[in-house]
């Protein structure tokens, strides 16, 4: 499909037109010197030159807490499924987060269709924006997530006074029809887009020493490395690395009952394999009761298990975990590079 161009000023008009039509837009806003996804009320709030958000946009597809069932236990227990999906636009998603959503799509549609996730996903329109201002902890080029040519409905690239818009779906094309000010992108504008992308690639400060496809092999040899214990020694088992991760999708399931002891809901919430009781079983056993095995498990999911299972890496290199970790041990790139150094 041909690419379009829209001036920055007209993009704001476009956003406000969508809002006035009643579209729900979730976009990136400034928040106390950081950036966070949130509900947009006016185009002026939208920030598109951010480096990274505190929490990933995937939280709007796999919420931190979500009802699965409503039940009533007054007489005989009755339960009904809760599947919530209201159409909304996820605006300003970086390519690494788009790739993370693609992984969740695969995970929740492989073997058993998770209707809760998939319905919400189907209701979401994704408007991406190229990340031209990478976070210092990010290593997206190593994970092949710095750019993407799919997984979005529209994708914007900032070329100075305007955006080049790539159309990724019919839904995206239809959306753009409501925006009459777009022009066909010229060769010059497309060239500028490429230059901006190249410039961004030069700004990443962290890189993997191992080619992405060799990560499983590297980890295959590293199970007994003493580095796991050394690295995890400082771990606080707080789970922050997991809570900010766009590709972590493990969850806990709990029941909540109203004070009347009649109505209640079963919900799932994000859970973390770095928390002490993640692998605990009834009767007191815990299959990962030390932080070394929990730390190693997380790194194996990032670099091996997920990739072998779903054909996509379990880490997109966004660097959020490294930013969130108080012990400064959470970066998969740093860990894999140490393993690589050791295995040489």
């Amino acid at each position: 499909m041909t690419e379009k161009v829209l001036s920055k000023q007209n993009l704001n008009i476009f956003i406000n037109t969508l809002l006035s039509r009643g579209e729900e837009i979730v976009g990136v806003k400034k928040k106390e010197g950081k950036y966070a996804f949130g509900k947009i009320a006016d185009a002026e709030e939208v920030c598109l030159d951010y480096d990274i958000t505190l929490l990933p946009p995937s939280m709007y597809l796999l919420p931190q807490r979500e009802a699965l069932l409503k039940f009533n236990i007054a007489e005989r227990p009755v339960a009904s499924p809760v599947i919530e999906a209201n159409p909304f636009i996820l605006f300003g998603v970086h390519p690494y987060d788009i790739k993370a959503i693609e992984l969740l799509d695969t995970a929740f549609s492989t073997d058993n269709l998770d209707t809760n996730y998939l319905s919400r996903r189907e209701a979401a329109t994704i408007i991406g924006v190229d990340c031209l201002n990478p976070n210092p902890n990010a290593f997206c080029p190593s994970m092949d997530t710095a750019f993407t040519d799919k997984g979005y409905d529209l994708l914007l690239t900032d070329i100075g006074d305007s955006y080049v818009i790539a159309i990724g779906s019919e839904r995206g094309q239809a959306l753009l029809k409501g925006c009459p000010d777009t022009q066909e992108a010229t060769q010059v504008e497309l060239k500028r887009k490429e230059e901006e992308r190249q410039k961004a690639l030069g700004q990443y400060k962290v890189a993997l020493d191992t080619p992405l496809e060799k990560l499983p092999q590297l980890l295959d040899k590293s199970w007994n490395s003493s580095l796991w214990e050394e690295r995890s020694e400082a771990c606080l088992s707080c789970g922050s690395c997991v809570m900010v991760c766009p590709t972590c999708f493990c969850f806990d399931v709990q029941d909540d009952i109203e004070l009347d002891l009649v109505e209640g809901e079963r919900y799932r919430q994000k859970d973390a394999c770095m928390l002490v009781d993640f692998a605990a079983v009834a009767g007191g056993g815990n299959f990962r009761d030390d932080k070394t095995s929990r730390y190693r498990h997380r790194m194996y999911r990032k670099g091996k298990y997920i990739m072998e299972r779903f054909g996509k890496p379990g880490c997109v290199g966004c660097g959020r975990c490294a930013s969130a970790c108080l012990a400064e041990i959470a970066s998969p790139a740093e860990t894999f590079n140490l393993m690589r150094g050791e295995s040489k």
Binding site: A107, T110, N112, D114, D252, R309
Partner: peptide
């Protein structure tokens, strides 16, 4: 501890 039973929640994982 197979919490979900459908290969999603991650609690029952043994390695991969």
């Amino acid at each position: 501890r197979m919490k979900c039973g459908v290969g999603k929640c991650g609690h029952c994982q043994i390695n991969g």
